[in-house]
Design a protein around this nucleic acid. Structure first.
Lengths: 122, 122
DNA sequence: ATCACACATGAACATGCGTTCAGGTGTAGG
DNA sequence: CCTACACCTGAACGCATGTTCATGTGTGAT
């Protein structure tokens, strides 16, 4: 049978001090969820490309669609995901919508993640 | 019908210069995929908690399971995901496996993401 | 006003992902 | 050797997520 955390574990070998210590540094559930959702929004190749592209300059949906090689509809959906976590913002100019990165944290996140990835020899 | 990037778009209003400029900054497909996978691995509340907890000190699977309130099996699976992108590493000591963060980039990523999240009033 | 277009949205479908269950591996102790 | 245990892994289930199709919205031009 599968053991769960309530039988053997806590009595015989869990180090409660370590657990308590670790628990203190955890963010609130709300922040944890927000963090996870933010990372998940970043966790798609198409959206990574969008964000990398937007580090240069703002782009309209059509340019992005062309760059990514997907339909405008798909691009628009992805942009909505990114908007939901305030990773990008946009302004309307006539019929066009120009998207840009919402804040500098995003740039930092991307750069730091890229460093991590590149360290992996790969 | 749905328009795709190959009919109207490129001829009439896509700004090819912008597209070309943006394309230059894009990482290789391999790096893009690695980035997306890394972010996706971070995009789960349980794994976020694990990483936050490990910023304090290394912990064994059992401690983590207790902290998270889930089974050891589930914890082990999540740890495997984190290992797959080298977000954590582990060392064996007798029967126990102690996990810790793989590099400092992870700490930076978490902190920066937390700043972003907290700026969102929320 | 009407049309074309640039983009957004809703719904449906298929894939992927996290969780759980069951069993497996390797180590420590008797 | 055998047992107990700390952890790992494979498979299956169910939900969430990404993509596509079709339609809707709003702007600019004629």
């Amino acid at each position: 049978m599968n053991r769960n955390a309530s039988d053997v574990c806590e009595v015989y070998y869990v180090n409660e001090k370590h657990v308590a210590k670790a628990r203190k540094v955890l963010s609130s559930d709300r922040e944890i969820l927000a963090l996870a959702e933010t990372f998940r929004n970043l966790g798609d190749p198409t959206r990574v490309k969008i964000l990398q592209a937007l580090t240069v300059e703002e782009l309209c949906v059509c340019d992005l669609a062309k760059l990514l090689g997907v339909s405008e509809s798909a691009t628009s959906h992805q942009l909505r995901v990114l908007r939901s976590r305030r990773l990008v913002r946009f302004r309307k100019e006539g019929k066009m919508a120009f998207y840009s990165l919402d804040d500098e944290h995003i740039v930092t996140l991307m750069k730091e993640a890229l460093r991590h990835v590149r360290e992996g020899i790969a």
